[in-house]
Computed example of a mutant assay.
Amino acid sequence: MKWGWEAISGISAAVAALLSFLAILYQIISNKRAMVPIIIPELKIMKSDISDIIYDWDTDEKMEDKFSKTEILLNNIGKEAAVDISCTFRAENESELQNYFLKSNILEEQESKSYLKISTNDITGKNANVHYRRDGAKKFYKNFRMGAYIRKLNSIPAHSNGEIRLPSYFIMMVNYNFMVNLKHEDTLPAVMPVLRLKVKFRDVYLKEWSVEYLLSMSSNYDFIDNSTLITSVECKQISKMKRVRSNWVKYVPLLAIVLLYAFLF
């Protein structure tokens, strides 16, 4: 098959038009991407009397079994609002925590009779059960749920923030480690809980995005009079912000190639 100059010129013009269209499309996508919300947790600085280990850091009230009233801020440093926001927490180092508390319970068995156990229930799922005897007299016992529960926010405007509450078991475990296990630090270094936070949200074009962080306790702290803890909850981004796409979207590049082939030949 021989190609005439007219055919070649036509194909060249079509390719040039296609490339021009793709360049414009890329610019539009880039501009939209620059306007995407960017959600980042803010450093949480805390100072609290933790001697009653099942009490909240921010309110000094007894915590519920799922979520505390201690809040961390989610900052939107992007140029557009984020809407339909969902935040999911789960324990990142659950197995490590479970093994650690098994060992610390043995050390504490002959002293205060305090213990912290992570167990699984057919109805409530993963649980953290704490029994704490303070000064040999006052007793605390409570069961905290460790499921991957979701917190929702309607929206966070650009250059603004919203609040989400930390899981109760996270605060309880930190309090327990300082009040009970810190004295065993030389023989059994403390293992603090680490939370994986997954944030999903939509932009103003209703495109869905997700990003993940790890929340952990700072290694710098002051523990005053064996009761007052001054420290912070830090965050580390562990995944890039990415689009949440439907399954059919992965076939779009293949479809574009097929259409281009059909157009040219």
Rank of each mutant, 00 (worst) to 15 (best):
A16Q: 13
A16C: 05
I24F: 09
L25H: 11
L25Q: 09
Q27S: 12
N31W: 06
A34Y: 04
I40W: 02
L43F: 09
I50H: 01
Y55V: 04
E61N: 15
D65I: 07
F67M: 04
S68V: 03
S68Q: 00
S68D: 07
K69C: 06
I72H: 03
N75E: 15
N76E: 02
K79M: 13
V83R: 07
I85Y: 01
S86R: 09
E96H: 06
E96S: 10
Q98F: 03
F101K: 02
F101C: 01
K103I: 10
K103V: 06
N105I: 03
I106Y: 08
E109V: 10
Q110S: 14
K117V: 13
K117F: 11
K117L: 10
I118L: 14
T120K: 08
G125C: 04
N129I: 15
H131M: 10
K138Y: 10
N143C: 15
R151W: 09
K152G: 09
N161K: 12
N161Y: 15
E163C: 13
I164N: 04
R165V: 05
P167I: 05
F170Y: 15
F170W: 12
V174F: 00
Y176W: 05
F178V: 00
M179T: 04
L188V: 03
P189N: 08
P189V: 05
P193M: 03
L197N: 02
K200D: 14
F201C: 03
F201Q: 02
V204I: 15
V204R: 10
Y205V: 04
S210K: 12
S210Y: 02
S210M: 10
S210H: 13
V211L: 00
V211A: 04
E212F: 05
L214C: 06
Y221Q: 06
D222H: 11
N226S: 10
I230S: 13
C235H: 09
I238S: 00
I238M: 04
S239Y: 04
S239A: 13
K242Q: 09
K242H: 11
N247F: 13
Y251R: 12
L254M: 15
A262G: 11
A262F: 14
F263W: 14
